[in-house]
Simulated assay, not measured.
Amino acid sequence: MRNPRIYEPQPLSQGQTLALSEDGANHVGRVLRMQPGQVLRLFNGDGNDYHATITEAGKKQVQVTITGAEALANESPLRIHLGQVISRGDRMEFVIQKAVELGVSEITPLFSERCGVKLQGERLDKKVGQWQKVAISACEQCGRATVPVINEVAMLSDWVAAPFDGHSLTLSPYAKGGIASLAKAGGARLLIGPEGGFSDDEVAIARQAGFTDVLLGPRVLRTETAALAAISALQLTLGDLG
């Protein structure tokens, strides 16, 4: 059985004895029902996995001692920043989860003219926090020790206007070239629209900001499918998918 892998949002170092956070203790003590002497792995987003042994275990508090540290080298050489217009229901969580598994470095949720989600204020802040937890959970599952940041929600026009070092791409069924034709680069910024697509004004804004239209294939894909297919193609062409 594989040792459980738990996110622990605090500084970690070899030889340290610490109490796990509330979420970590709940998962280890209540869900997994682990006992003193059992081992697990911790990570805090600094690029390392920390091997730990449980010294005390209860339903409300779990204490561990870190016995070793291991630097992981499973981050993609391609830095992908996904700009995803917010979608309804659990589709946004699905995209974030799978995008993290595929190796994106950063995700910015976007509002656009045809975005079907109308969130603001405290509800929006809570949703961003929830999306960050989805990203952390995906890292626990896929073995990444660097947690992608879920940025605050931005307007599409503001996001495309920000400077970026690398390819700036959006998908279009009318594009002449595909992702396989892209030159080598260290970064790629990917703009994915809502279910209703971009307006003509938004297409123009993206092009004026230097975004290149790329053709993904002959079929029309849903927004969540398009994001994941494009990320996979980028990783296959410029990243670390074989």
Rank of each mutant, 00 (worst) to 15 (best):
L119P: 05
I96C: 09
D200C: 09
C115I: 11
E56Y: 12
D125L: 06
C142A: 05
R123Y: 04
Q208N: 10
G187T: 07
H81C: 00
P148C: 03
P109I: 03
A25S: 14
P109D: 11
V117G: 01
P218T: 08
P9I: 15
L182C: 10
D125A: 08
D201H: 14
S13L: 14
H51R: 01
G210M: 00
S87Q: 05
V104K: 03
A52K: 03
G242M: 01
F211D: 13
R222G: 01
R5C: 06
E140L: 13
V100N: 04
K176R: 05
A135M: 05
M34K: 05
N3S: 14
G58S: 12
F164G: 11
I66F: 01
A180R: 00
E75H: 11
V64M: 10
A52V: 11
G58E: 12
E22H: 05
D125M: 02
L234R: 02
Q235P: 04
G196K: 04
E106H: 07
E93P: 05
L110C: 07
E140H: 06
A69L: 15
L110D: 15
G217W: 11
P218F: 10
A19S: 08
H51P: 07
H51Y: 06
V100R: 00
F198C: 02
V100H: 05
Y7W: 01
A99D: 12
L171W: 04
Q10H: 08
A180L: 03
T55F: 15
L78Q: 12
H51D: 13
E101R: 07
K126P: 03
S232E: 10
E140Y: 06
